[in-house]
Each structure stands twice: as C-alpha cells, then as structure tokens.
C-alpha cells in the first residue's frame, strides 16, 4: 500500500479548464505523479480508488441540488479540500444566473424544462462546505497549482501572493493602460496570480483572479464614471467570472441601480 498522499480531482459546474491545467503541467507531471498517488482524476484516467483522500482539488460551482449533496460527500472524504478556479471560489461566469430568473433560462433553452433540476443560483464551494484553500483564477495559473501541490507535499503554506495585479504590471515594466490610454482595467482591485497578462497585450484586466483583499472597487468605479465611462460599460466588466464575489457584486449592483434610475 502506497504511503504517498492520495490526490483526487473532482468537477462540478465548470468548463474543465482548471483541471486541464494539471494535465497541462507537462514538465512537472511526472514529479507530481511521483509525489502523490493520483487516486481519482477522471479527466486523466478511468481508474478510481475510493476515498478517503488526503487532498481533493475541486473545480466548479454548485448549481444543482445533486451537486449540493455531492460536495458534502467530497468534503467528508477529503482531509484537505482545495477549491480551484473562479467557479469553485466565486460561482463562475454561470453565476450571472443569480441576477436573473433561472426558470426563464430553462424554458428558453430546453424542450422539456421539467426534466431539469437546478438551483436558482450558482455559488462557490465555500458557501456549502468548509474549504481549506482557494486557488483563484479563470483558469488557475499552472505555476500556482504546482506551487500549491508542492507546498502540500512539503507540509508548508503555499506561496500564492494576494496583492493586486498592478504590482505585477510594474515588475514586468508594462505601462499602465488605464492611465496612458484611458482603458477601464480591473487590475488595481484584482488579485495577482496570472502574471498580469492582459495589460501586456493591450487590454484591461477583467478580474479573472477575483478581488484583491480590501479591494476598493467603489473608488475605482467612481473614477471611471467621472472619466466618462458609463455604468452600461462598467456593469458587464464587473459581472464577469468573479462577478458574484461580494466586492464586485456590491459595486455592480450600485451601478446597475443607477443605470435603472436613468432609464
């Protein structure tokens, strides 16, 4: 019997992109497989070793009553539960349903909506069970995933900085596209993790790693409004992969209310 920690990967409502990041860690994959017993990872292998597991990497949000039950079972089977990706940590892009009537969507999409059993909301894992660690991103960053696994194996805290994206732009010498071009950018209120990719390719940060700690989203939004960007532009920017996080939601709701008042 192996004494290596047992790793399991589970998926809820998601695109699979985050667990794909594990397969995409080509250079490190053999080392990972050497350090851990990959006991359950359906995207990679149909071999499933039953729980309990030492580490569970869980992707996806909770959108059905079945999933709400299943995540509790995953929790019961897992010593250390890591939520990976914006769906698992914030509800994902599918949390747009939280501002709408999901029954209406069902009626529009499915010939027999009565076959579909779904929750009215898409929510983060932490809204349902205790999560030991959240790895942010849409998708998660490969280097950060390897760092989390390395830290778990070594029994230390993962080194995943929580400062804003601006610091990464400055370290790599990217000129601020917000100041130099007037492009609304979520970088100042978004947590690092991606390496500040988007501004380096001439577009604003769209917040895929979610709000930085103590993010002052309201001040940033006010500045854009004063600079001429309307709520009609800003609400969709905030209601993205991490739109349902309290920090982004509060401000997008205020802007949406302002928009509704002017219509």
């Amino acid at each position: 019997m192996s004494t290596k920690p047992k790793l399991a990967v589970f998926k809820f409502a998601s695109c699979d992109g985050c667990q794909l990041t594990l397969l995409d860690a080509e250079d490190e994959l053999l080392d990972i497989a050497g350090a851990l017993d990959i006991a359950c990872f359906l995207e990679a292998s149909s071999r499933v070793v039953p729980g309990p597991y030492d580490v569970a990497l869980v992707e996806g949000s909770i959108t059905t009553p079945h999933d709400a039950e299943r995540i509790r079972e995953v929790r019961r089977q897992s010593k250390y539960l890591v939520a990976i990706g914006a769906c698992a940590t914030a509800g994902g892009i599918q949390a747009l349903r939280n501002w709408a009537d999901s029954q209406e969507f069902l009626a529009a999409v499915y010939a027999r909506p009565d076959y579909i059993e779904t929750l009215a909301t898409s929510t983060a894992l932490a809204d349902h069970v205790t999560v030991d660690f959240e790895l942010r991103g849409c998708p998660i960053n490969r280097g950060q995933l390897v760092e989390v696994i390395a830290a778990l194996v070594a029994g230390r805290r993962p080194r995943t900085p929580n400062h804003g994206v601006c610091l990464d732009c400055k370290r790599r010498g990217t000129v601020c596209i917000s100041v130099a071009r007037g492009v609304p950018c979520l970088g100042p209120v978004t947590q690092s993790g991606c390496g500040a990719i988007c501004p380096a390719y001439d577009r604003g940060c769209y917040g895929c790693h979610g709000p930085a700690p103590q993010a002052n989203v309201a001040s940033l939004a006010e500045h854009w409004v004063r600079s001429g960007a309307g709520p009609a532009q800003l609400v969709p920017l905030l209601r993205n992969f991490n739109g349902f996080t309290p920090e982004f939601r509060r401000v997008s709701d205020e802007l949406a209310a302002r928009l509704a008042a002017t219509e």
């Binding site: 601006c166 610091l167 400055k170 993010a215 002052n216 001040s219 940033l220």
Partner: peptide, 13 residues
C-alpha cells in the same frame, strides 16, 4: 483612504 485603491502603483513608479 476612501479614494485610495492601495494598488501600490505610486510606490512602484
């Protein structure tokens, strides 16, 4: 503090 984003840009530049 109500205006500051604490984004570190001032210290970086």
């Amino acid at each position: 503090a109500a205006r500051c984003l604490s984004c570190a840009n001032c210290t970086m530049v």
